[in-house]
């Protein structure tokens, strides 16, 4: 009696009908699941839609998350069905004669083709979207290959120093500020550098993330699309206050930005005079007490 059950449920015919059942339920649930991820969860996914680069990142995450749904559901459904239908029932001895195990070249082939296509397709997708949209908000090094199609850029230099970020504005007299405001609907060029160790400028909601290396200018682009607050965090372990190395910025209207920048330029006029000439990198040439400073020929250790 037990043998009949075994043979019946594991015959080629039974297998096919099981697969049809699994696939049809899977297809329906997958479509619903994918729609839910795309339309309901999608708009809430990180890092939001404040800039074109953030939008791009959100699209990528949404796309990959949506693709994951059918894969995940297929695995779950197959396991679920197997456990319900093909488990050893009370009274069965559960051993399977070796003769009952057979290969299925069609199933194997399908498995190879589908998984290979998925993985390679995602690799191509990821590679394309990582570089094509003006570097996807990542640091592209000193001479970026993917640039936005405009020369009307607001330049913001990000200077990382243990343990704060400061910002320099070459288009506003080279002033340096401890805060950052950006105008909306504007293409921004970040020039990221460090005065000491390696830091990382991660402006989360802007979809920008670029390493800050000493003696190196790392360029990243983004276009602001909506006003609001964003967070800047250091994302390279850089010492005791690494965890405290963050600040908040705001994307404001262009008019508000102009006002802010002009105010800052006036407020900072006396300290701007003391700053070194604007440069894409600054060389702290000394270590040790006094630590050296940037872009000047005076030996800071001369008095020590």
């Amino acid at each position: 009696m037990a043998r009949f059950v075994l043979e019946d449920s594991r015959s080629e015919e039974a297998g096919k009908s099981a697969l049809v059942k699994i696939l049809s339920v899977w297809a329906v649930v997958s479509i619903i699941g994918m729609a839910l991820v795309w339309f309901v969860l999608g708009p809430h996914l990180a890092p939001g839609t404040m800039t074109d680069q953030a939008q791009g990142a959100q699209f990528d995450i949404k796309f990959v998350s949506t693709l994951v749904v059918p894969v995940l559901l297929f695995v779950w459904f197959f396991f679920g069905y197997s456990i319900m239908k093909w488990r050893v029932r009370p009274g069965e001895d559960g051993t399977l004669p070796a003769a009952n195990l057979s290969g299925n070249s069609k199933a194997q082939g399908a498995w190879y083709v589908i998984t290979t296509t998925l993985v390679l397709g995602l690799a191509a997708f990821g590679t394309y979207f990582l570089i094509a949209p003006a570097g996807a908000g990542g640091g592209e090094g000193a001479s970026p290959i993917w640039t936005p199609g405009t020369t009307k850029l607001l330049q913001v230099q990000v200077i990382a120093q243990q343990w704060r970020f400061t910002y320099r504005w070459p288009q506003f007299g080279g002033m340096e500020t401890t805060g950052i405001e950006l105008p909306v609907n504007t293409e921004i060029e970040f020039n990221v550098t460090s005065l000491d160790v390696i830091h990382d400028f991660w402006a989360y909601q802007l979809g920008v993330k670029a390493d800050a290396n000493p003696d190196y200018n790392n360029v990243a682009y983004t276009k602001t699309l909506a006003t609001g607050r964003f967070t800047v965090r250091c994302d390279e372990l850089c010492g005791i206050w690494h965890g405290a190395m963050y600040n908040y910025g705001t994307v404001v209207s262009q008019q508000q930005f102009e006002q802010w920048a002009t105010n800052m330029e006036q407020q900072n006029a006396s300290v701007t005079k003391l700053l070194p000439k604007y440069s894409l990198t600054y060389t702290p040439s000394y270590s040790g007490a006094g630590g050296g400073y940037y872009n000047t020929s005076v030996d800071p250790n001369a008095n020590l």
Partner: peptide
């Protein structure tokens, strides 16, 4: 203590 120059002169501003 004795002094030197600042690594980043922006810190010469009192705030």
């Amino acid at each position: 203590d004795s002094g030197g120059n600042l690594r980043n002169s922006v810190w010469s501003q009192v705030a």
